[in-house]
Every structure is written in structure tokens, then in C-alpha cells.
Computed example of a mutant assay.
Amino acid sequence: MSKHMVAAVRIDLDGRAEVIDLSAATSTGAAIRSAIGCRWFDVVRLGPALDMWVDDEGATLADAQVNVIATTIARAYGAVWQPFYGVAVFTAHDGDGTTVGLSEGVKDSLLTGVFHRPTVIR
């Protein structure tokens, strides 16, 4: 039985966005750790179906760098209390909180930078 692709968008510090498949790893946690390059991660719920996964230790690193694009996206959704550091991964979740792949529209919005208005990404 083949796994369904769990399409996520990874945004690097330089703003480069790429689609990644989280289903290739043994667990969602392992996939997130690998994609971000960290030991500990946290999720920021941005919308009813949009999550941003970030390095939980990112701000404490000696060479910590703000991810300007991820922080801008988060602020567009009201997460204005802090900047976000390091690589960020965006996914969706179902009604029960289970991580699922992004819709084509959200994925395209993240890849093309159409994220300034929260109504664009649902």
C-alpha cells in the first residue's frame, strides 16, 4: 500500500520556497525535524487549516537568523508577538489536528509569495 503524499512548503532563510513530501519519513515528527534541521520543533497554528512548524531552539542559537518570509506570513495571520527563526515548514491540519498536506491553492500561494492578505490562504 502506498502512502499519500503529504505536501508541505519549506521556506529557507533566503526566502526560497519548495514543496516537500512529509510522508517519506517514518513519522511526521521525523519529517519535520529533517526538513527544518533541528532537534526540537513547535507548531504555530496560523489559521483553521494552516500550520507553521519552526525550530523551537532557533532563537537561542549563536548565529540565529530571522526567517523574514515566515515571520511576514505569520504576522499576516495575527502572530505578531515574535519573529520566527530558521527554516519554516507549512502544512495543513484536519479537524482533529492531524497534519495533512496543503491544498493546491495554499501551496501555490506560498510558492509564489501571495501571502500578504490572509484571505488568500485558507
Rank of each mutant, 00 (worst) to 15 (best):
I36F: 12
A49C: 00
A31C: 08
A64V: 02
I36R: 09
A25Y: 12
R33C: 10
V68G: 09
A70N: 11
A88I: 06
E18V: 14
R16L: 05
I20S: 11
D14T: 04
G86E: 12
A79G: 06
F41T: 04
W53N: 06
F90R: 02
E57S: 06
V54H: 14
V89K: 00
G15E: 10
D42E: 14
A88H: 07
D12K: 12
Q82I: 05
A24L: 12
D63T: 03
Q65F: 02
A7F: 01
I73S: 03
E57T: 07
E18T: 15
N67W: 07
R33V: 00
I73A: 03
Y85I: 11
F84I: 15
R10F: 02
Q82M: 14
V43L: 09
A7Y: 03
T26A: 15
R33N: 04
R10S: 00
A70E: 12
A30S: 07
I69P: 00
P48G: 09
Y77Q: 12
L13Q: 11
V6C: 15
I69N: 03
R33W: 00
L61D: 04
T71C: 09
A35C: 11
W81H: 09
S27G: 02
V54Q: 15
D21I: 07
P48T: 06
G78W: 10
L50D: 13
L50K: 03
A62R: 13
I20T: 10
V19A: 13
G47S: 08
A76I: 04
T28R: 08
D21W: 04
R45C: 08
D56M: 01
D55V: 09
A24Y: 11
I32P: 02
G86K: 09
A59Q: 12
A59N: 06
A24K: 13
V19R: 15
A31I: 07
V66Y: 08
R45M: 07
R10V: 01
T60N: 13
S23A: 14
P83W: 01
L61W: 01
P83Q: 14
E18I: 12
P83V: 05
W81D: 02
D55S: 15
A30D: 11
V6R: 13
A7T: 13
W40R: 12
L50S: 03
G47E: 01
I11K: 09
